[in-house]
């Protein structure tokens, strides 16, 4: 019954990093779903405003930006009311920021489980990224309401919004795994990540129109992968149009590159992490 060939676990058996990860992902579907639900319910239970906080937080922030840039600086966004442009940008950048932060800290936070149970730790990061995605979809409600009120309407392409959302989830999971790899070695990495996220938020045309960027610097904006995600998303959610093909390519390409790099770096550092946590 228990001969060597049917050992459930044999350290001499070779593990194939990337392939095993994807196989794992499939066999741990149930766990993944539970963790996503956990992440979402915990987030809403923690604050007394519950689910409304998800909606209120970016709305308040957008309100402040709208007063400064919409009313005082009077930003013009061609073809769309500034509020819709601003809100879509702020909601998306909030999604990215929260996603990377929660994904990056998911593994350290679950250290006491991960040192005792043999589950792929990446599952905890993937769950955090998926929860951020679900949270984002929920937070689109006020944007859609604003579009209706301001006469922008809701184009049919809104059903394609899950495409950029899914790509962002994959991108966030990859970046989060890189952060998680570093977070166990350096406890200040999450603070540094927050600073970095803030920088990239300002470099992404989320609350200012891309038209104000001088021509000689536009390549810098285009180089920022988040700009591609945001443009594709905006095209679908209110523009009723497809972003240029290169932005789709850049979006999918950077998502795949990020997740592969994240899994690779993480699987190499995990052993050194687990000894210490």
């Amino acid at each position: 019954m228990t001969s060597d060939s049917d050992a459930r676990y044999d350290s001499a058996r070779r593990r194939r990093p990337l392939i095993s990860d994807f196989e794992n992902l499939r066999s741990y579907r149930g766990l993944l779903r539970l963790l996503v639900v956990r992440d979402l319910t915990v987030r809403y239970k923690r604050s007394s405003l519950g689910v409304w906080w998800t909606l209120l937080n970016p709305l308040l922030f957008s309100g402040a930006l709208w007063i400064v840039f919409g009313q005082i600086f009077r930003f013009e966004t061609p073809g769309v009311p500034y509020i819709v442009y601003l809100l879509s940008g702020v909601l998306f950048m909030t999604f990215f920021a929260q996603g990377v932060t929660t994904t990056g800290s998911a593994i350290v936070n679950s250290a006491s489980i991960l040192t005792k149970v043999s589950v792929p730790p990446e599952i905890f990061s993937f769950a955090a990224a998926l929860a951020a995605g679900a949270n984002f979809v929920l937070s689109l409600l006020p944007l859609l309401v604003a579009q209706l009120i301001l006469g922008v309407g809701i184009p049919w392409t809104v059903i394609l919004v899950p495409i950029p959302v899914a790509a962002t989830v994959v991108f966030v999971a990859g970046i989060g795994l890189l952060v998680a790899s570093a977070a166990v070695f350096f406890y200040d990495i999450l603070d540094l990540t927050a600073v970095f996220i803030q920088l990239i938020s300002y470099l992404t045309p989320s609350f200012y129109p891309v038209e104000i960027i001088p021509d000689q610097f536009i390549w810098l904006v285009n180089l920022n992968p988040l700009y591609s995600y945001l443009t594709v998303f905006r095209g679908f959610v209110y523009g009723g149009e497809f972003a240029p093909a290169w932005q789709f390519a850049y979006m999918f390409g950077s998502a795949i590159a990020a997740i592969l790099l994240g899994i690779w770096v993480f699987s190499r550092s995990w052993k050194n992490l687990v000894v210490r946590i």
Partner: peptide, 19 residues
Amino acid sequence: MKIIAQVLPPTGGRIRVHG
């Protein structure tokens, strides 16, 4: 414990767990 729990693969040697 982490090695027995299959959380951490050993650097050298071999461990087998049945069950």
